[in-house]
Every structure is written in C-alpha cells, then in structure tokens.
Nucleic acid binder design. Sequence first.
DNA 1: ATTCTCACA
DNA 2: TGTGAGCA
Length: 121
Amino acid sequence: MRSEVRKSMPLLSISVVMQLTDLTARQIRYYEEQGFITPARTAGNQRKFSLNDVDILFDIKDLVDDQMNMASVRKIFAMRAQQKQEEQDNEALRRMMREEHLRAQRLKTTSIRQGDLSRFY
DNA sequence: ATTCTCACA
DNA sequence: TGTGAGCA
C-alpha cells in the first residue's frame, strides 16, 4: 500500500525528530549507528528521517526506559537481599559465639576428661 | 543557523 | 552518553 511509502518518506530533520522523540541528537545518531534506523541523507549529508524511523525511535526509547526500570528494581532487590544476608550472617555469628561460650562453660564445670570429650565433637 | 564526524581534561 | 572542535 502507499501508506508504507508515505511512512518511509524521508522528510524530518534531526531537530524535529529530537523534539518528537525527546531524544538527544547523540542518541539518535547512535541508534542509527547500531542499525535500528536508516535515515536517508540529503546532498549535504544531512539526515532525513521518515515516520517509520520516528516510530522505531519511540520503541527504542520505551525499551531503554524499561531497562532502566529493571536496573532500578534489580538494585533495590539486590540491596534487600544483601541486607538480609548480613542479618542472617550476624545471627549465625551470634549463635556460634553462644555455642562457644556454653561449651567453654561445660569444659570448666564438667569432670569429663579431654579424651572422652572428643567423642562429642 | 544547523548538522556532521570525530575524539576524549 | 555528553560535549566541544572544526567543517560543510
């Protein structure tokens, strides 16, 4: 259909695309470099974007935003996990120290000889 | 005035 | 990705 032709017609300057997509010129050029869009060029080597290009840029932007959100979520989860891990480690350490303390007291008050005590380890 | 490529105190 | 340089 001719709509594809229209959508692919190169007529937007980079400044217009910037305003439309809220992306920086740097980003737009970078995405082209990555092969996501293939804007046409004028005789003066200036980019001319089609509506399809803009459409793709919107998609890319959404994906990038999602990635950032995921990164944020991961950070939060990682911090929580780390915090819990530290709490568990601390608790484990306390238990060990308490065990040590009790054992030391048993050694002090018990009449069992060292040799026999080894059976409990 | 705009955009382009290239490069990095 | 930002940003500034030097062109077209």
